[in-house]
Amino acid sequence: MNTIRNYLDNMFLGLPDTEEVIRAKKELLTMMEDKYNELKDSGKAENEAIGIVISEFGNLDELAETLGIKHALENKSDILQVTYEEAENYIEDKVKTAPKTALGVLLLIMSPVLLLLLLGLKELTNVNAKEDLFIAAGLAVLIAMVAIAVSYFIRFSSKLEKYDYLQETVFELDYKTEQMIRGIMAQNEHSYKSAVSISVAGYILSALPVILTPLIFDIDGLSVISVAVTLTIVAVLTYNLISKSAVNAACTVLLQQGEYSVKSKSNKTLQTVTKVYWLVITAIYLAYSFITFNWAISWIIWPVAGVIFAAIQAIAEQRS
């Protein structure tokens, strides 16, 4: 029954809320429900009943004149239509590139790990090797990992570039396509939810090494190494989360939910702010880390920036 209601909502999407239109929708729904109930009573399966009701619904164009929505219907067809194939390709490409994007993120998060380990070991062993050597080796690896990650991002973002419009413009799906996407999303829901809960629990636990090591040992070197451990845990969790949430992320974009809702898309300011915000955060992170060499602490900017971003988004949504 919800399917029928969704179908009708979809057909009426974007039409003016005049009394006439509302009455038409209500009465059409009643007729469809009556038909559905009788088909069900006559022993038809749910899906079959829904299929018959929808195939016999007709076309809203027939009502254009009587409802005074001719203009609205014409405008409606100006809205970009995303086809079944496009939607399918998008999900497929997203799923294909997800492990690589995830690997890029993993490299990025782990890039300071070796540097931290070397610095920690140096403190612990008190070897008289030149500190510069440790730093140079660690830095070289750090820069190499960042470079690989960035080249990954560039490669995959250019591959997915053709789908950018899905995230930026308002579009419409036909009924069949929307059902297909909802189906995929539902099928994937379990694996997505468990990945999210594992990650959230993991993120919380990942803070333990950083918090506990100084309390227990009070050795500088170990504290630095504990940061490396935490970063590694975070990196693995993030890798898992990104690769497991690809399907869900693609479906969210296609169904225009959350930050891709029609409402958010029409909020251009938020879009610009988002882009600028993350660039500024990245600049601050790099500048601070390289100037002070406080890699053991500077990563804190990421979780903090994430929470602040959520707050900005909430405020922006309320304003619009």
Partner: peptide
């Protein structure tokens, strides 16, 4: 002949007018 819901509703409206 199976009448579509939209056809029927538009007929109702037309006939009412």
């Amino acid at each position: 002949y199976i009448i579509k819901e939209t056809t029927l509703y538009s007929a109702f409206k037309r006939m009412e007018i």
